[in-house]
């Protein structure tokens, strides 16, 4: 369900709205697009990043800017939502790489994947458990088990082999079960 637009734009397709933005710099058309696609995009980005809403908001803003910067290359062979999701995944991957580099340099102040046992009330919080998975495992698990993507699509979006995607998924599920059972298992 992608519809969350203003009533006056409910009858316009994504392409019509995009054309209105490109040709007339139509703010209302952009707002309609934004309201239609941002809720899903934001939820996905926030879940994949697992670094809080502020980080996710920054990424979503970057996604919209980048989307309109590169709309000239978009051929409309896929839906606008899919294309937007692709940009979002690309941005998330870049961010996660940046976090990884920061960690290697000992500069990452962001929360690391939890190794300590969780308090009992948090064990039922599936969302939090997903957030505690290692980045690469979390990405694959969310895209496959929550978003319903195939390994081929995941591999394409994340720039990894399909086999690696399958391995990450397997490890992610094991770890998630361990976290949910309170064992704090490590792979």
């Amino acid at each position: 369900m992608h519809e969350m637009s203003a009533p006056h734009d409910s009858g316009r397709t994504d392409r019509e709205l995009v054309d209105a933005v490109l040709s007339h710099k139509d703010e209302l058309a952009f707002r309609a697009l934004y309201r239609r696609h941002t809720p899903r995009l934001f939820m996905l980005v926030a879940r994949l990043l697992a670094r809080g809403d502020r980080e996710a908001e920054d990424v979503v803003q970057e996604v919209w800017i980048h989307a309109f910067e590169s709309l000239g290359r978009f051929q409309w062979n896929s839906s606008f939502a899919t294309w937007l999701t692709g940009i979002g995944l690309h941005r998330v991957r870049d961010r996660i790489r940046k976090y990884a580099r920061s960690r290697e340099m000992g500069m990452d102040a962001l929360p690391e994947v939890a190794m300590a046992p969780d308090p009992p009330e948090a064990r039922i919080d599936l969302e939090r458990m997903i957030g505690r998975l290692p980045d690469e495992q979390r990405l694959v698990l969310v895209l496959h088990d929550v978003e319903g993507m195939k390994h081929r699509e995941i591999a394409e979006h994340l720039g990894i082999p399909e086999g690696t995607s399958k391995t990450h998924l397997s490890n992610a599920r094991k770890r998630l079960r361990a976290l949910m059972s309170g064992k704090g298992a490590q792979t």
Binding site: M1, M4, V21, L22, H24, K25, D26, E27, F30, R31, Y34, R35, T38, P39, R40, F42, M43, A46, R47, D53, A56, E57, V60, Q61, W64, I65, F68, E69, L126, E127, D145, V146
Partner: peptide
Amino acid sequence: ALGNLPRERMPVGLEARVVEAMREHGFLE
């Protein structure tokens, strides 16, 4: 359990920020 996770959430206050950023980049009037 995974299927019941929420799929959408609208961030509060982000729209104005994004619209302003779009305006600064010249995509909006």
